Lab assay of single mutants.
Amino acid sequence: DELEKRVKKIARKLNLSLDQVEEWLKRNNNDELVEAVKRLKKK
């Protein structure tokens, strides 16, 4: 979905793993995208 695409884009842009992106999003209080990261990690 759109949020998952955004997460992947962030990960690529910042050259981070999904775990690192998740931490980064949590620090930025971006719950919506944190949920998207969790969905991606399950895939």
Score class of each variant (00 low, 15 high):
A36E: 02
I10L: 14
R39S: 07
N30Y: 15
K43A: 08
S17T: 14
K43E: 07
K41H: 04
E4Y: 07
E2A: 12
L16N: 01
K26W: 05
A36T: 05
D31H: 14
K42W: 04
D19N: 08
Q20E: 14
K13L: 13
E35M: 09
K41L: 12
K9Y: 15
L16V: 06
I10R: 03
L18D: 01
E23Y: 08
R12W: 13
L33Y: 03
R27Y: 10
D31E: 13
V34K: 05
D19G: 06
S17P: 05
K5N: 13
K26F: 06
D31P: 13
E23A: 12
L25K: 01
K8H: 11
V21Q: 00
K41R: 12
V21Y: 03
E4G: 03
W24Y: 14
D19C: 11
N30R: 15
L33C: 05
E2N: 09
R12M: 12
V21P: 00
R6A: 15
K26R: 14
K41E: 05
E32I: 11
I10D: 00
Q20T: 03
R39K: 09
S17M: 05
A11V: 07
K43Q: 08
K8W: 15
R6K: 12
L14K: 04
E32W: 10
L14Y: 15
K43D: 06
R12S: 14
L14F: 14
E23L: 09
L3Y: 10
N30D: 09
I10M: 07
K9S: 13
L16Y: 09
N29W: 06
L40N: 02
K42S: 11
E32D: 12
R6G: 02
R12D: 12
K26L: 11
E2S: 11
E23G: 05
N28P: 01
D31N: 13
N29E: 09
L14E: 02
R39E: 08
A36K: 02
R6F: 14
N15K: 12
K13E: 14
D1F: 09
L3W: 10
D19V: 06
K38R: 14
R6W: 15
K43I: 07
K38A: 06
L14I: 02
K38L: 07
R27E: 10
E32R: 09
D31C: 15
V34G: 03
D1N: 11
K8M: 15
D19L: 06
K9G: 10
V37I: 11
L14T: 02
E4N: 05
K42M: 10
N15H: 13
L18G: 00
K5Y: 11
K43S: 06
W24H: 04
K9F: 15
Q20H: 04
E4I: 12
L18C: 08
K26Q: 10
V37P: 02
R39H: 06
E22V: 07
L25H: 00
K8E: 14
K5R: 14
W24Q: 00
E4C: 03
N28T: 13
D31I: 14
K42I: 09
L25R: 00
V37H: 02
V34R: 07
K42N: 12
E22A: 07
L3R: 06
L3G: 07
V7I: 10
N28R: 12
E35N: 07
E22P: 02
I10E: 01
L14Q: 03
W24G: 00
L3A: 13
A36D: 02
E23K: 09
L16E: 01
K13N: 09
S17K: 06
K5V: 12
I10T: 01
V37Q: 02
N28F: 12
K42E: 13
E4R: 05
K9P: 01
E23M: 07
V34N: 04
V7F: 03
N28G: 13
D19T: 08
E22Q: 07
L25T: 01
N15R: 12
L40Q: 02
K26E: 07
E2K: 12
R27M: 13
A11W: 10
V34T: 07
R27H: 11
N15D: 05
L25S: 03
E22D: 04
R6Y: 14
A36P: 00
V21L: 15
N15S: 09
A11Q: 13
V21K: 00
E35W: 03
V21H: 00
R27D: 10
V34D: 04
I10G: 00
E4P: 03
Q20M: 07
N28I: 12
L25V: 03
L16Q: 03
R6L: 15
W24A: 01
D19M: 07
N29M: 09
K13I: 14
S17R: 08
K43T: 06
E22G: 05
L16R: 02
E32K: 09
D19Q: 08
A11L: 14
V37E: 01
R12I: 12
K9E: 15
N29A: 11
K43P: 03
V21C: 05
Q20R: 05
K41P: 02
R6V: 15
E32Y: 09
A36F: 04
K42D: 09
N15V: 04
K8T: 12
L33N: 01
E23N: 06
N15Y: 07
N28L: 12
S17G: 06
K8N: 08
N30P: 03
L40D: 02
E23F: 07
L40E: 01
Q20I: 04
I10F: 03
K13H: 10
K43H: 10
N28Y: 13
R6C: 09
R12P: 00
I10C: 06
L33V: 02
R12C: 15
K38N: 08
E35A: 11
K42C: 15
D19Y: 07
V7C: 02
K26A: 11
R39G: 06
R39W: 04
L33G: 02
R12K: 14
L18N: 01
S17Q: 05
K38M: 06
V7W: 04
A36W: 04
N29G: 15
N29D: 08
L18A: 02
L25F: 15
V34Q: 07
E4D: 04
N29F: 10
L25W: 02
L40R: 03
L16P: 00
R39Q: 08
V34Y: 10
R39T: 05
V7D: 01
W24N: 00
K8G: 06
K38Y: 02
W24C: 08
V34F: 07
L14R: 04
K9Q: 15
A11M: 15
K26S: 09
K13Y: 13
N29V: 07
L18Q: 02
A11K: 03
N30M: 15
Q20Y: 03
R27T: 10
Q20D: 09
K42H: 10
I10V: 04
R12F: 12
E32V: 09
V37S: 02
K43W: 12
L33A: 02
K41Y: 05
L16C: 04
L40H: 03
V37K: 01
K42L: 09
K13D: 15
N15M: 08
N15F: 06
L33I: 04
E2R: 11
I10Q: 01
L25E: 00
K42V: 10
N30S: 09
D1V: 08
E22F: 08
D19S: 08
W24S: 00
E35F: 02
R27S: 12
K8Y: 15
E2G: 07
N30E: 15
K8L: 15
V34A: 09
K9N: 14
K43Y: 11
L40C: 04
V7Q: 00
D19I: 05
L40W: 07
R27P: 01
L25Y: 06
A36I: 08
R6T: 12
L3V: 05
K41C: 06
V37D: 02
L3T: 04
N15I: 04
A36M: 04
A11D: 00
K26P: 00
R27N: 11
N15P: 00
N15E: 04
K38F: 00
D19W: 06
L3F: 10
E2P: 09
N29Q: 11
K42A: 14
A36S: 03
E22I: 12
L25P: 00
L16M: 15
V7L: 08
K38E: 06
L40T: 01
K5E: 15
N28E: 09
K9I: 13
R27W: 08
N28C: 10
D1T: 10
V37C: 13
K42Q: 14
V37T: 06
E35D: 09
L18H: 01
L3D: 11
K13R: 13
L3K: 07
V7R: 02
E22T: 04
K42R: 11
D1Y: 10
E4W: 08
N30F: 15
K26C: 11
V37W: 04
L18P: 04
K43C: 13
K41S: 02
E32L: 13
N29H: 13
K13P: 00
D31K: 12
L40P: 01
E2D: 11
E22H: 07
E22C: 07
K41G: 02
E4Q: 03
A36V: 10
D31R: 09
E22S: 04
Q20C: 09
D1H: 12
R12G: 08
A36N: 01
K13C: 14
L40K: 02
K8S: 11
L33M: 08
K9L: 14
E32M: 09
K41T: 03
K9W: 15
D31F: 15
S17D: 10
I10Y: 04
L40S: 01
